[in-house]
Design a protein around this nucleic acid. Sequence first.
DNA 1: GCTGCATGATGAA
DNA 2: TCATCCTGCAGCA
Length: 271
Amino acid sequence: MPEGHTIHRYARRHLETLGGQRLAVSSPQGRFADGAARLDGRRLEEVDAVGKHLFYRWEGDETLHVHLGLFGRFRTHRATVPEPSDGTRLAMVGDEATVYLSGPTACELIGPDEEVTIRERLGPDPLAAGVNGDGLAQVRHNLSRRRIPIGAALLNQSVVAGVGNVYRAEVLFLAGIHPATPANEVTPDEVRTIWELTRQQLRRGERAGRIVTVDPHEVGARSRRDLSRDERLYVYKRSGEPCRRCGMAIAAGEMANRTIWWCPSCQDGAN
DNA sequence: GCTGCATGATGAA
DNA sequence: TCATCCTGCAGCA
């Protein structure tokens, strides 16, 4: 379930549970054996999240870069720790918790130059602590020079870092913008709306530990907590179902190699 | 048991 | 635009 909110949540939780400790690090699967051996017994000092990337800082100036990709997943165990599965790329064992990582796109030790390269490829991160109006200006600039559909642009991490397939669909619905609208035709006001919604929704997702974009009152619930699994999103994976606002059937299509959903009535415009 | 799908990204063509 | 890499799990026989 890795969009930016999940990554930032992991950074915070891993620092809380493992930070400051010397960890037993290994690679049960073997594919990160050399790197794990290098980290084994070192103290974990810091965990940074940028977009969908994680950087673990260890004593001795080692940096572990993790990108979960589509399948990557962390599991934290406390009281009883099961044997790692065959696919466990990385195991980090601390005083009170064990963290297993499986299926990452990237799990590697990197140097300062490589980290700079990664960061330079990324647009502003809506969850970055210091992001202000400057992030909005950057997104405006990044969108203004692209003719691709806004729905494709939002998945491009060099435009905004941290948005994935769920948030791109949900944010465009909330903004009332059709996903096929060319990025450079989205007005400055609309970009502001997109940026602010993205920040708000990612923050919400990080806090809740799951993506909930629906306003509970619209579905007759009292709070976000009361929403059932099927009530949490407006359009994502709701092809053919009635729009929660206008009742029109949610449409689906492909954009940037992924499925996108939208309400043809609430998100008019292009097409 | 097998198949297909998934909240990602890259590199070749 | 396509093929490819990452893994787990729901849905089906």
